[in-house]
Design a protein around this nucleic acid. Structure first.
Length: 181
DNA sequence: TACTCGATCGGA
DNA sequence: CCGATCGAGTAA
């Protein structure tokens, strides 16, 4: 029985735990062209200003402003001038954190999944709820801890070894990981 | 206002 | 390994 996960469920302070819990949930996209639901298979956590890989590492800016709002809001930004990145803001208001959705069934890679589901910056700041056309559903998939693999995050070497090595990327163990450790 | 550099991807 | 592609962020 599909259950819409309320935005409020993402206001937990434990961003890393929220990231892990998103695996197995369904990302649902609804537009004039129809509805698509795909299971989330890869995510990364970005947790607060102290996290040197997080966009909030230099404090609040125009781009990362929604990260400072309440959890349960989409944070979408352009990366490398051509890829839209989809993140779900987490935590209570005032605490900048988010989970990057890196992979769904049939679309591995953060840039590919946004293209597959027609997601772009117009969704930035909108709620994770049906009225925005993009939300999360729990369809009863239960993943044992052993089914989840944790690795360092991708493409964040600029954060320095301490933060780049944090095992805050999570993916289904059955899904073949990239060769990064 | 100038300059640097990306939470990536596809092709050589 | 390298180029694409452009806006945010920083320095000045």
């Amino acid at each position: 029985m599909p259950r819409i996960v309320k935005a409020k469920a993402f206001q937990s302070e434990k961003t890393v735990a929220v990231a892990r819990s998103l695996l197995g949930k369904f990302l649902v996209r609804s537009t004039s062209r129809g509805k698509v639901a795909r299971m989330i298979i890869e995510v990364e956590a970005y947790d607060g200003e102290r996290d040197r890989a997080c966009h909030a590492r230099h404090g609040r800016t125009v781009r990362n402003a929604v990260m400072y709002g309440p959890g349960g809001v989409w944070y979408v930004y352009l990366c490398y001038g051509m890829h839209e990145m989809l993140n779900l803001v987490t935590g209570p208001p005032g605490y900048p954190a988010a989970v990057l959705i890196r992979g769904i069934e049939g679309a591995r890679g953060p840039g590919r999944l946004t293209q597959a589901l027609a997601i772009d910056r117009r969704l930035n700041g909108s709620a994770c709820a049906p009225e925005s056309g993009l939300w999360i559903e729990d369809r009863g998939v239960r993943l044992p801890r052993s089914a989840i693999q944790a690795t360092p995050r991708i493409g964040v070497d600029y954060a320095g070894p301490i933060w780049a090595k944090k095992p805050w990327r999570f993916l289904l163990a059955t899904a073949s990981p990239r060769a990064d450790g």
